[in-house]
């Protein structure tokens, strides 16, 4: 574990419930994790795993029917659950910034991008108008937007998707946040632009020693950018570890299943092994381990009790009964012929 001084964000035993006409449903169930300075933590999961809701709760942006019922969120040692909305507004975008999946809708179409960036800076700092203007141009240059002086006069619809996502990142970075939260920021983008945005986030992270909390469902993106990985399923973290631990030596059948169900570009001959069934929705009440109905290794106890946490390595934890016996090791299928890169 990291030294507690380096801990930027610590989420402890967090539970989030949503009230609906059918009664409360638990979206996030008892999750604990850290993000340190200069570290990229990736939350991997499918729809309904609670990954996006976790992010929103950190930003205190949960919709009205969602509520944190248990646990704490510490940011730089302060408990954020005690903060008023006013204090929270200050922290948002100044200390913690968030970028969203869809750059098309996250910008206001009636204002120029220059105005929108200026606005976030003015909201949070006492800079003069001229200094602000220079800062805007600096930010746009930083995120790799060519000819920033002309761009600031443009409206969102005049920019391509990748450019808009860069603008979003510029806005997110405008006040030098300590933590950047990204909710599938590249899913809506083309692959060439995705790679640029990923590289950009990595560069900026190194430059400013930011913590990055990154949510995605794309295993290849995770491998590329993550330092540590949290695998979420059914509102719980089922496996946690460094990228090497989780990707090379997955210990949870779900993680293994995810890896085996994506085509690997480097090993095209490897057959896919899909996980049967589909991810549970929030109102499914599954006893025991949430994954057991889809798990090919499911044992009797899996449907009775939720597995306790087993420590594989100092940083590698997994919630699966298979670890109790220690019989199971991973089965990531290998192709016969490895891709011969040129």
């Amino acid at each position: 574990m990291q030294n507690s001084n380096e801990n930027l964000l610590r989420v402890e035993e967090l539970k989030i419930e949503f009230s609906s006409s059918k009664g409360p449903t638990r979206a996030v169930n008892d999750i604990t994790f850290n993000v340190s300075k200069g570290e990229t933590v990736c939350i991997v999961g499918e729809s309904g795993s609670g990954k996006s809701i976790t992010l929103l709760s950190i930003m205190k942006l949960l919709s009205k029917n969602g509520e944190i019922t248990n646990g704490n969120i510490h940011f730089q040692g302060n408990n954020m659950r005690n903060l008023s909305n006013k204090q929270m507004r200050k922290i948002r975008n100044q200390e913690i910034s968030m970028i969203f999946q869809d750059p098309m809708t996250a910008l206001n179409p009636v204002f120029t991008i220059g105005y929108q960036i200026t606005e976030t800076i003015l909201n949070h700092s006492g800079l003069s108008k001229k200094a602000t203007h220079e800062r805007v141009i600096e930010l746009l240059t930083l995120v790799g937007i060519p000819a920033p002086k002309q761009r600031i006069k443009q409206y969102p619809h005049e920019l391509s998707g990748g450019m808009r996502q860069r603008v979003m990142i510029a806005i997110a970075l405008s006040n030098n946040p300590k933590l950047l939260i990204a909710d599938e920021p590249t899913t809506a983008l083309d692959v060439t632009i995705q790679s640029q945005i990923l590289d950009l986030i990595q560069d900026l992270k190194e430059k400013f020693n930011m913590g990055v909390l990154f949510v995605t469902h794309d295993m290849s993106v995770v491998t590329e950018i993550a330092d540590r990985i949290l695998v979420m399923y059914g509102g719980k973290i089922v496996e946690e570890g460094t990228v090497e631990d989780v990707m090379v030596n997955p210990k949870h059948p779900y993680t293994e299943g995810l890896l085996n169900s994506v085509p690997d570009i480097n090993r095209p001959d490897r057959p896919l092994e899909p996980i049967p069934g589909s991810p549970p929705s929030l109102d499914d009440d599954i006893p025991g381990c949430h994954f057991h109905p889809r798990c090919k290794y499911a044992m009797e106890e899996c449907s009775i009790e939720y597995p306790s946490t087993f420590t594989i390595d100092s940083d590698h934890h997994v919630n699966c009964w298979l670890q109790k016996t220690g019989e199971w090791s991973h089965h990531v299928s290998e192709s016969e012929v490895l891709y011969d890169s040129q």
């Binding site: 049967p276 069934g277 589909s278």
Partner: peptide, 17 residues
């Protein structure tokens, strides 16, 4: 795989909706 896809998803749905 043990259970077929249909079996698995079918039962899930009948129970909840």
């Amino acid at each position: 795989m043990g259970k077929s896809h249909a079996e698995l998803e079918g039962t899930q749905i009948v129970e909840k909706k």
